[in-house]
Design a protein around this nucleic acid. Structure first.
Lengths: 159, 159
DNA sequence: TATCCTGACGAAACAAACTTGCATTTCGAG
DNA sequence: CTCGAAATGCAAGTTTGTTTCGTCAGGATA
């Protein structure tokens, strides 16, 4: 729900850089860092939330701590790329909690999924549900993460 | 820096479910939702932050709004898998801001990267820097995201 | 069984942060 | 140069976060 043309100035970008790292930073400290008063910072944050520049404010949970220690990538190739079937696939992937991320891509695959599971048994069950029970998956390639070298949603910001 | 064995109860999980969706939710409301007082909620959150169950609190920035509208996946295959070279690759990927996520994986590739770039020119420059200038990249496959169907770091929580 | 210790809880007091109103300033268009 | 829209800072008011403290439940010990 972007409400208007964003057009961010250097204050906004500096604020974003901080919030992107830690959104519990007090507005007073942000203000000191960017040379602005706390209310000014607050108004800018609010505006960016309303215009969709800030898409959300979330706590990042460590998967291993909640019994989901395995991260898996899957490249999915469909049989048919009819719009209706593509949309159905998008919907199913979106609705599946273990699917942490889902992208519809160009190239040698149609979808790339990032999954979070408790163990390989859980993954096997998922493949059954998502791929084999679907009549539209031609094949899929699996990559198991040995090391989550860098994880996040941080976006590089212009200077 | 996990400080102790976590072992989360159903209160903790219920709190996590909320924070994972919106960490600006007042502790009072969380308390009402999980049947606990605000201080109890606050203590549990603090403990989970200290033990690493909660890895961070961040604002999610919309890439398109800050001039990085293109998301790209790359499978990277190295020439040599000597530990030293693997570590060097991890380090370089980690240090590159455009590399939003980096995983070291098993399977037909060694790394999977999630990149955020302004345009294809920027990607071309990145490939030069990350892959061609490195003497250890055998090949890489590129997937350009047409639709970010589901994006986030949300982890499925046990009941 | 009685006692002590540990850990977690809620209510209330307290401190800090967020939010709003308002006068002033800034900046671009006319 | 003047005007008006938009953003700012300050100060008050409100909400939220944090600490304190007394209580209680469970477990170990004697």
């Amino acid at each position: 729900m972007p409400a208007s043309p964003p057009s961010l100035d250097s204050f906004d970008l500096a604020i974003l850089a901080i919030l992107q790292r830690d959104n519990t930073t007090p507005q007073r400290l942000i203000g000191e860092a960017v040379n602005l008063s706390a209310p000014a910072v607050q108004r800018r944050i609010k505006r960016m939330e309303q215009t969709g520049v800030i898409a959300g404010n979330v706590a990042v949970v460590e998967p291993a701590a909640v019994g989901q220690p395995i991260t898996i990538f899957v490249e999915v190739e469909l049989e048919s790329e009819r719009t209706e079937l593509i949309d159905a696939a998008k919907r199913q992937f979106s609705e599946t909690p273990e699917v942490q991320q889902c992208y519809y891509v160009t190239g040698e695959a149609d979808f790339i999924l990032v999954l979070t599971v408790a163990d390989m048994g859980a993954y096997e069950a998922l493949t059954r549900k998502l791929f084999f029970d679907s009549n539209n998956v031609r094949k899929f390639r699996t990559f198991v993460a040995m090391d989550r070298v860098k994880v996040g949603l941080t976006v590089p910001l212009p200077d």
